[in-house]
């Protein structure tokens, strides 16, 4: 039942997004797990398209914030302005008060503005002029950042990266996919005709269902062992925090639900670990000199940690 609902969304997205089923799946996973996604990629590969499609499919409110160096926190959160007619301050909600938010080029704005967004993401609420306002649920932020080598950027602090459930890379479509993109663009602008396939309530129900996905002790200990390995790895300066383990577990539950399985398997852990752990580790300079990236370290850890597979090794 749940799988069918999720499948509908994914198929709907696929109508406008050619290829990139995995990114759609992972975004959906993050949405189900109540997490946010950081997309690190060059412009023009269809990030906006994907988020828009997702928002339309679930009938959610879609907002987009284009981050620029002169953007202020109030431009994100909203501002109270004096209304002379009413003789009182009136709150004008900022773009953060939506369901699905695309935060474009988040690393181009000042840290102050970045943290305004990130706080909102973490707390699911914003506080303006001493007044706390809940952000409507579901709340899903997909932030994009240009690869940090670009000039004029404010790289996100490591602690703030922790706010994102996944950090993904979209990559270019294959030539065949790209041709398909062009062909579709000839006929119509597909995004405008996209229908809503599930309701927001359905989505909230799905988010609740994620909590029912079974994570056996074996898998929990597998996740913890993997996280521990990142802390003891010689190339890693700062390993994955317990919040990272927790995020991985939640992500796994959501992903299991997405594939229609009511329990988490080590396969889920292995599939999601790079996306969850990747941006949560700080590598030592040695690793950078040797050209080792965090994905590779995670790959090595996963190859090393033995998968729990029988009752003896689980007990």
């Amino acid at each position: 039942m749940q799988k069918e609902l999720i499948g509908r969304v994914l198929n709907n997205i696929e109508k406008v997004m050619i290829g990139k089923r995995d990114i759609a799946e992972l975004s959906m996973t993050a949405l189900l797990a109540g997490g946010h996604v950081l997309l690190e990629d060059v412009p023009g590969v269809g990030k906006t398209m994907m988020v828009k499609a997702l928002a339309r499919s679930i009938g959610a409110d879609f907002k987009r914030i284009q981050f620029t160096p002169d953007l202020l926190p109030s431009d994100v959160l909203g501002v109270s302005i004096y209304n002379p007619r009413e003789m009182e301050f009136e709150f004008r909600p900022g773009p953060i008060m939506g369901n699905i938010i695309l935060a474009d080029e988040i690393n181009r704005t000042s840290p102050k503005t970045q943290s305004a967004l990130l706080e909102g993401m973490e707390e699911s609420s914003v506080t303006i002029d001493g007044e706390t306002m809940r952000i409507p649920q579901p709340f899903f932020v997909m932030a994009t950042q240009n690869p940090i080598e670009y000039e004029g950027t404010y790289p996100l602090p490591e602690a703030q990266l922790d706010r994102f459930l996944f950090k993904l890379k979209m990559g270019y479509p294959t030539p065949r996919e790209e041709i398909e993109v062009l062909r579709r663009a000839e006929q119509e602008i597909p995004i405008d005709n996209l229908e809503t396939v599930i309701t927001l309530d359905d989505l909230i129900n799905l988010q609740h269902a994620v909590k029912d996905v079974v994570v056996s002790d074996a898998v929990k200990s597998y996740i913890v062992t993997c996280a521990n390995e990142t802390r003891n790895n010689p190339f890693v300066y700062l390993g994955v925090s317990p919040r990272g383990s927790l995020s991985l577990m939640k992500a796994c539950q959501a992903y299991a639900l997405l594939v229609g399985r009511m329990y988490v398997t080590p396969d889920d852990v292995q599939y999601l670990a790079p996306f969850v752990f990747g941006h949560r580790m700080i590598l030592k300079p040695e690793a950078k000199y040797e050209g080792i990236e965090s994905d590779e370290i995670i790959e090595r850890i996963l190859a090393k940690v033995s998968v729990p597979f029988d009752q003896v090794s689980i007990k």
Binding site: T265, P266, D267, Q270, A303, V305, V307, F309, D310
Partner: peptide, 27 residues
């Protein structure tokens, strides 16, 4: 069944399918 499955794993190992440490059962 659990015993059967584990014995099958062992037999497959003898047959030549060596399961690596980090390899999941499904893979």
């Amino acid at each position: 069944y659990a015993k059967q499955y584990v014995s099958l794993l062992k037999q497959l190992d003898r047959f030549g399918f060596k399961r690596k440490n980090g390899e999941t059962l499904l893979k």
